[in-house]
Amino acid sequence: MYGLGLLKGLGVSLKRFWMPKITQKYPEVQPDLPQRSKGSFKYDKDTCTSCELCSMACPNGVIKVEWHKDESGKKRLDRYRMNLGHCLFCGLCVEACPTTPKSIDFKTDFALGCWRKEDIYRIWTKSYPAAEAVAPVMAPAATGSPAAAGSAGGASGSTGVASGAPEGGN
C-alpha cells in the first residue's frame, strides 16, 4: 500500500525518541579513550639520547632536536621542539625512537585547540645545574630562548638542527 513505508518510518523515529541518548556532556564527562588513542605527545627529556631518529623519520619535519656535545663527546639535549600544526599523527617518530620506554610517545590528551598559533608548538627545554655546565657559553642555552640557544650552539659548533621545521615558537 502506498504510504506504508512512511508509516514505518514514523514508527522508527517514535521508537528512537524513547531510546537512550548517546550525547556526552563533554567538559564534565571526559571521553573514555582507548590506550592507543593518538591525542598529543608526551616526551621524556631524561631518557632521550638526542639521536634524532624521530626527526629523521618524520615526513613533515615536525620535530627539531637541539643538542650540544659535552667535553667527553656525549650528546646533551638542549631543546626538543614539535610543531604540532604540521603533525600527521602517523606515529613514525614513536616507531623510530630506540629507547625503552619510548622517549617520545602518544598520550590520549587530545585537547590541542589554542588561540595563538605559537601555542601549537610543544617545546621541552632541559637545563643543567651550573656545576655540570661544561663550557660557560652553554649557560644561556639552558634558558630556552631560541636566539640564545642558536648562538650558544653556534659558539660550541655542535648544535644539531636536523629538520626543516619552520622557525617560530617562544
Partner: peptide, 30 residues
C-alpha cells in the same frame, strides 16, 4: 561511531587510520 571506536582502539585514530605499513600492520590487536 561504533566502527570508529573500534578503529581508534586498534590504530589510535578515528578518521585517518594509519595502520597498514610496508610488510604488514604496525600493531597487534589490543
Amino acid at each position: 561511531e561504533d566502527i570508529s571506536d573500534l578503529l581508534e582502539a586498534v590504530s589510535g585514530s578515528r578518521l585517518l587510520v594509519n595502520y597498514f605499513v610496508n610488510g604488514g600492520v604496525n600493531a597487534d590487536l589490543p
